[in-house]
């Protein structure tokens, strides 16, 4: 509870014009400082805690989700300004279809409205920042009217020239994604497109056939808010190797500038040290590698046996 009142206090302090200006100047400087270090290329977010937030603040559910959307915009802004290329968000899980129809409809509507708000006009966030929006997941499960709007959103932003991509996972589960990849490969094999099944099906092909495909860089940082230490079927394939997973207690609507920058800063700190280690290691392994000690030895003297003298 204390974090809510604290951030609420901060927000009201910064709503004074001068302080607000100061704060945005401060934020800009933090970002330009952080840009000088190694920045994660791909960040994934599980935005958990909208409903708990609404309950705690005595708000209707819809306002909780709205507050979450606001949080998302500020987090996206920080990420893209820092130089993150791909941001992937878990908007709706296939398991979420277990919720009440009313909430599903609300969620779909909010998602559509927010994505349109992000991308509709030329002054909108996505178009201004040249962000490509991609829908990741089993599109067959989306109701037709919503799907059409979402495809419009994808269409409008697909010509962006910058590397910035927002992957919206909707409706998505990682197991479904892996299944999809296997099915794609089997379809290709059946059609005779893969010649030598034994040799040509490998980890890379399976990875490239995932919804996200080969263009997405490897995942560097996965963040889940509101304290659950589970992955809930999100990006299991991508996050289990060379990826920092952070579980934070903050509820998603309270997760703003400070939350995201501190996690990325922490990631950068360790990355800097790791890169430095790797540089040093390479130097030392070059020195260590000796191919075959036995063969490199000089010739021994002639071998002469006492009993087998020829």
């Amino acid at each position: 509870m204390s974090s809510i009142s604290f951030s609420g206090l901060l927000n009201s302090v910064f709503s004074f014009p001068i302080l607000g200006y100061g704060a945005s100047f401060l934020k800009d400087s933090v970002i330009s400082v952080m840009r000088t270090g190694p920045v994660p290329k791909h960040v994934a977010l599980i935005m958990d805690g909208n409903r708990t937030y609404a309950q705690r603040m005595n708000l209707p559910l819809r306002d909780g989700h709205n507050a979450g959307a606001e949080s998302l915009v500020s987090v996206l802004d920080v990420c893209f300004r820092l130089g993150v290329h791909h941001v992937t968000i878990y908007a709706f899980s296939i398991e979420n279809f277990n919720r009440s129809q009313e909430e599903i409809d609300t969620l779909f509507e909010i998602l559509r409205d927010k994505l349109e708000l992000l991308s509709l006009e030329s002054s909108s966030f996505a178009q201004l920042n040249k962000i490509k929006i991609k829908i990741i997941g089993d599109k067959a499960l989306i109701p037709e009217d919503i799907l059409k709007d979402l495809e419009d959103v994808e269409e409008r932003t697909k010509n962006s020239t910058s590397p910035r991509v927002l992957n919206v996972c909707f409706p998505y589960t990682s197991r479904d994604e892996i299944t999809h990849s296997i099915r794609e490969i089997a379809t290709k094999a059946q059609a005779g497109e893969i010649q030598d099944i034994k040799n040509n099906i490998d980890l890379k092909l399976l990875h490239d056939s995932l919804y996200m495909g080969e263009e997405a860089p490897p995942l560097d940082l996965l963040i889940r808010t509101s304290g659950h230490t589970r992955l809930s079927d999100f990006m299991l394939w991508q996050c289990n190797e060379n990826c920092t997973i952070e579980f934070v207690k903050t509820l998603w609507p309270d997760f703003k500038f400070l939350g995201i920058t501190s996690l990325i800063l922490k990631w950068m700190y360790y990355k800097t040290l790791q890169l430095d280690d790797e540089e040093n290691d390479q130097g030392s392994t070059e020195r260590k590698i000796v191919k075959n000690i036995l063969q490199d030895l000089p010739h021994p003297p002639n071998i002469v046996s006492v009993t087998e003298r020829g």
């Binding site: 990682s174 892996i178 809930s232 079927d233 299991l236 394939w237 289990n240 190797e241 997973i245």
Partner: peptide, 11 residues
């Protein structure tokens, strides 16, 4: 996670 079987860390 050290490349733990990805299918098996769902929930």
């Amino acid at each position: 996670l050290q490349d733990y079987p990805p299918w098996h860390i769902r929930l």
